Simulated assay, not measured.
Amino acid sequence: MIPPIDMGTLSPPAQKIAQPSAPPKLQDMAARGVAPGLKPGELTTVLVLLAASERDSVRETATKTLAALPDPILTGALGSDLPPAVVDHLARAYTARPPVLEKLLAMPRIDVETLLHLATTGDEATTELIAVNEERLLKNPRVIEKLYLNKHTRMSTADRLIDLATRNSVELTGIPAWREASTAIKDELIPEPSPEPTPDDMLFQETDAIAEELTDAATTDTHLEDDEGQEKVLEKFLPLYKRLADMTISQRIRRAMLGTREERMLLVRDNNRLVASAAVRSPQMQEDDIALISRNRNISDEVLRVIASTAEWMHSYTIKKSLVENPRTPVMVATKLVPLLRESDLKSISKSKNVTSPVKDAARRHLDRRK
């Protein structure tokens, strides 16, 4: 919660203008930016207060004035120590002006809520500005999380942020695949900060564009299974598949977090267990996708283990049943789910040729107990 502006810190003329009981004409003039005797920083502070006025005309005029402050007033305000609420208002109003944001981000009293907002919604230029202050990031790990999960943050910057947190033993629980991302970064070369995007940054952006073009709600899966049960990538997804294959492990993990459904369905089959686990942990995974994955016999046991340990997916009877029936599901996991199935399904499982013997035995034992 950003602290409110303390009226007691304002000069008497500023307090007179900002008081709710102030004469309407006085507030109307100030709302247009006309307040003789007030310095730029204090005038801007008064405008922020008036932008919350109960007087409609004053509120609307002050808001418009703040969105297009004359350069002398804006420059003067940026050179003073602004209250957190004023910094926040300007940061939201001037997101398209990096020089302004750079000065706001250097404000000693900028609030973490402002940083979180900018880290979540900012473009590439904004996220680069935020990522520079490592000391502040370590004090506010949630900002690192928001930057990582912002698609506009460069991949090279995201790598440096994960490396920064890992080296300083900061656990970023807001990143669903934090464990995988942290483990992967230890074996990778961390790029130095660069004024321009690196080739890896360009690869990440180009892959995003290709993935968006291939998004198709009508496609159930990215693979087709042949008569022998072997999977093959559908031809339309081969360009995306090859792009992902060219990426580092860290890059594929982040694409699993931020990419399209098609990317997640490709990456959940990745030969690298860290990547596959990250894909199934993606916050964008839907129940239908998990149901499809849980019955796939080409999926790794680690992915199936992650599904079984996720409470959200264990509310689905279909997913529980698919995990029990899937021979790739670890035996300990499958047998723990057996008691949760209906009797009719247990009978079918106990006779199935496609279920492992330990699971069939567990189904029979549970049926006997019920009798």
Rank of each mutant, 00 (worst) to 15 (best):
V275H: 03
L214F: 13
K336T: 11
E171M: 12
A35K: 13
P358S: 04
I249C: 11
P283G: 15
T126C: 08
D123Q: 10
S156F: 10
P36K: 03
S322C: 07
M257T: 06
A119M: 02
S294T: 12
E302A: 13
P70M: 00
D159C: 12
M7W: 11
S357M: 14
G174K: 04
L49P: 03
K360P: 01
K146E: 12
L118R: 00
L104P: 03
D6P: 09
L147C: 01
T335W: 01
L78C: 06
P176V: 08
T153N: 05
S21V: 06
L234N: 14
I2E: 06
V132P: 00
M314P: 11
D163Y: 10
E263N: 10
D345T: 02
S322L: 09
G79M: 13
V48T: 14
T329H: 07
I130E: 00
Y317Q: 06
T120V: 01
F204S: 03
L341H: 12
V58Q: 09
L47W: 00
K139E: 13
M155D: 11
L238V: 15
E212N: 13
M202Q: 14
L116A: 08
D301H: 12
T126K: 04
V34K: 02
D345M: 02
A362T: 12
G174N: 07
D361R: 13
P98R: 00
G174W: 05
I299F: 03
R364L: 15
L38R: 01
P283R: 14
T157F: 10
T63G: 06
G37H: 10
P195S: 08
R97W: 04
D270S: 03
S80G: 02
L137V: 00
A131Y: 03
A279K: 04
T183F: 05
T120D: 09
K320V: 02
